[in-house]
């Protein structure tokens, strides 16, 4: 189980910066490749899950994204961070999947929202508080799943994965100057959706 934003390390991480690990992986060190994979694959899976809502599809996308990530390691710009680069691959894979299935990003969102909320877990020992918190989280993730893809991904990248505005601009391939306004618009729509849902509940 993984809680945001604690995605940076995993049990048994041998350490070293991502850039160092990339250099070692390119030099053929198998352990460096394994460490990079273990350090980032969970975040890749979670992003795919949050965009697709389906566990099996998310696993397929994350596996494929990791393979492409390693296949393109030779062209990686060392000035950039690994995670935004991997997220760009995940996002492209998700879009490819929608295209292959000839679905628009908004199709099947209610099922996706339900499936996504089933993957939520609670970690506290207080059942009453857990129930309230769980219901709130379910409402929020259901509303997120119902947002247009462009709005859902920017919120998820910022608020769950804790990416900086410049990293978000890189992943979404948009100017950094538009990140704040697009993010605010997405947050406003999410809030409006939650308020509308609250009134109907």
């Amino acid at each position: 189980m993984v809680e945001s934003p604690g995605l940076a390390t995993f049990a048994g991480d041998a350490g070293g910066s991502d850039q160092e690990l990339v250099d070692q992986a390119l030099a053929g060190r198998r352990e460096a490749t394994e460490t990079l994979a273990q350090r980032h694959r969970q975040a890749a899976y979670l992003l795919a899950l949050q965009l697709l809502g389906n566990r099996d599809d998310a696993m397929d996308v994350a596996q494929e994204a990791m393979l492409r990530f390693f296949a393109s390691l030779g062209t990686f710009d060392r000035e950039r961070r690994v995670q935004p680069w991997l997220f760009t691959i995940v996002r492209n894979q998700v879009r490819d999947l929608w295209r292959r299935r000839q679905r628009r990003p908004g199709d099947g969102l209610s099922e996706a929202g339900e499936a996504l909320t089933r993957q939520l877990v609670d970690l506290t020992a207080n059942p009453e508080a857990d129930l309230r918190r769980r219901e709130l989280k379910q409402r929020v993730w259901r509303a997120l799943a119902a947002l247009p893809a462009a709005k859902r991904e920017i919120i998820v990248l910022r608020d769950f994965h804790d990416l900086s505005y410049s990293d978000i601009a890189q992943v979404l391939d948009i100017p950094i100057g538009t990140v704040m306004s697009r993010l605010h618009g997405a947050r406003q729509q999410l809030r409006a959706q939650l308020q509308a849902g609250g009134r109907h509940a």
Binding site: R55, Q119, V140, I155, D159
Partner: peptide
């Protein structure tokens, strides 16, 4: 309101696939 929603998203936790599903490597 925006801060409350952000905090809810930030503190969400998801079930992760077991390690053996990740046994593949390049």
């Amino acid at each position: 309101g925006l801060a409350a929603v952000k905090e809810t998203i930030m503190t969400s936790t998801f079930d992760m696939p077991p390690d053996n599903e990740w046994s593949e490597g390049p």
